[in-house]
């Protein structure tokens, strides 16, 4: 796995990160962020449990980001 970003930032003056890289497809990612926000903000699963699951998933997939 690369230690440097493989795609550039689409936002002037901003370093490559998840938001600035995916901004290359801003219309598409607008739908993604709406979906991701829905995951987090609503539903019957407690936010604390969602965060535990997110962290465990990041560990299992070995994602340090």
């Amino acid at each position: 796995m690369s230690s440097k970003p493989r795609l550039s930032s689409a936002l002037d003056g901003q370093a490559p990160d998840f938001g600035s890289v995916t901004a290359h497809a801003a219309d598409l990612m607008g739908h993604f962020f709406a979906l991701y926000g829905e995951f987090w903000q609503n539903g019957v699963v407690a936010p604390q449990l969602k965060e535990l699951v997110r962290l465990r998933n990041a560990r299992v997939t070995d994602c340090g980001y």
Partner: peptide, 16 residues
Amino acid sequence: NRPELLSHYRSFYLKL
């Protein structure tokens, strides 16, 4: 079972 989740999932997936 989560109507808002369905709506957003559908919108994003179809846009892909």
